[in-house]
Design a binder for these strands. Structure first.
Lengths: 187, 187
DNA sequence: CGCCGAGTTGAACTGAATCAAGAAACGTGG
DNA sequence: CCACGTTTCTTGATTCAGTTCAACTCGGCG
C-alpha cells in the first residue's frame, strides 16, 4: 500500500485524510497467471495498481493478437480509453504471472474527485502523464523503423528484453517474430 | 469569445466568476499566413484557442517536414507535450491562413487551477480528451494500412480533403505524395 | 506567354510479411 | 532425471506495399 502512496507522491502530496479516503476505496484482488483482468466487449470500470505480477494489454485484429502494452508491479493497469469513454473494451488484459492488484472503480474515483481538490489534480496529472506516454509511442511508430524501435529498447535497457518472450516483444514493436529474430541476428 | 465558452461547456459548467477569471487571462493575437506560432527549440508555454484561421503542426526529421496535426477555428492549438513537460518543442506550428487566436500561458493557467476546482477539473477533462485523440491516432498507425487511413478520412468526410493540399494530407497520413496519388487513382 | 508548384505516372528498389521447414528451449509426466 | 511433445526461435525463398527517382502534365498567376 505504501508503494501506491509513493507513486502518488511523484504527482501531489495527499493529506492523511485524502489518503485515508483513497485507501478505503481500494480493494485487493488476485489474478492467476493467464487470468483475464478484462475481456474484449466488457466495459473497463476500474483502474488497478499492481502490487505483484505483470500484465499484457492486447487486442485481436484479423485473427491475430497484437500487444499494445505491458504493465508491471508499481504500474497502473486499466483500459484507460474504455474507462474514460465508458465504451466496451477492444483489448484484453491478461496476467503474465500470478498477480495481486488494488482496484478502484469509476464511481468511487468520481466521488473522490468531487470530494478532494487534490485528488482531482492527481487525476489531471495522471491523465497528462498518460498523454505523454501514448504520444511518445505514436512518435516511435511514425518516425522510427522497427529496427530503430528495437534499438531504443536495447538502449533503454528495457525490462521487456529480459522478462518477456521474444514473440511478444515483436508484437509490441509492431513486427512479426521472424523479423525481430532477423534484426537481432544482424550485427 | 462565446465560442470558447461553448467549447468548455462540453466539459464543465463554469460559473460566471470562473469564466470572468478565465477571460481575464486570455489575450488576443493575430498570426499572418505562413507565420510561426511556435518554432522548434522554443518552449511552448501557451495554449491558444483558434477564433479564425488554421494551423499545421509539423516536425522536421531527416530533412523532411512531417505533419502531425491540423488545427482549425474552434480547436485548441499548442504543443501539448512541450507545454506539459516544459521542454523545447521539436515541432513547428505554422498558420495556413491569417489567424486570430486567444492565448493563455502556463503560469496563468496554473493560477486558475489553484483558484478554481472546476477549472482544475476542466484541465483534467481536456487532458483525458487529448489522450483519446492520440490513442486513436496511434491505433490508426499501428493497425491500419495507409490506404485504410485514407479511406477513414473519406468516410468521415474530413475537412482535410477539401481544405488542405494533397501533399500535406499525404504527410499527415505518413506516406509520400506519390503514394497518396496512387491510392486515389485505384478504385 | 512562360514559369512554377502540385499532382500524376512509370520503373526499379527495399524492408517487412508470408510461407515453410528446421533447431533449440521448456516443462511435464513417467 | 530423462524422454517426449509443445512452444519458441531461427533461417531461407518469395511476395508485396510503399519508396525512390525521374519524367511529364496540368493549372494558376506573374
Amino acid at each position: 500500500m505504501e508503494a501506491l502512496r509513493t507513486y502518488f507522491n511523484q504527482f501531489v502530496q495527499l493529506s492523511d485524510a485524502e489518503w485515508d479516503d483513497f485507501k478505503a476505496c481500494m480493494s485487493k484482488e488476485t489474478v492467476p497467471k493467464k487470468g483475464l483482468l478484462l475481456e474484449e466487449g466488457e466495459k473497463c470500470n476500474f483502474i488497478a495498481f499492481i502490487q505483484e505480477g505483470a500484465f499484457r494489454f492486447y487486442t485481436v485484429k484479423k485473427g491475430e493478437e497484437s500487444i499494445t502494452a505491458f504493465f508491471f508491479a508499481g504500474d497502473f493497469v486499466t483500459n484507460y480509453r474504455s474507462f474514460l469513454t465508458n465504451k466496451p473494451s477492444n483489448h484484453y488484459i491478461e496476467a503474465l504471472q500470478d498477480a495481486v492488484i488494488l482496484k478502484i472503480n469509476l464511481q468511487q474515483l468520481q466521488q473522490l474527485y468531487n470530494k478532494h481538490k487534490t485528488i482531482e489534480r492527481l487525476g489531471r496529472l495522471i491523465a497528462e502523464n498518460l498523454y505523454l506516454v501514448v504520444a511518445n509511442r505514436l512518435d516511435a511508430f511514425m518516425f522510427e523503423t522497427p529496427t530503430e524501435r528495437y534499438e531504443q529498447l536495447v538502449k533503454r535497457g528495457s525490462k521487456l528484453l529480459s522478462e518477456i518472450p521474444q514473440y511478444m516483444v515483436a508484437s509490441y514493436l509492431g513486427i512479426k517474430p521472424e523479423t525481430l529474430s532477423r534484426i537481432r541476428a544482424r550485427k
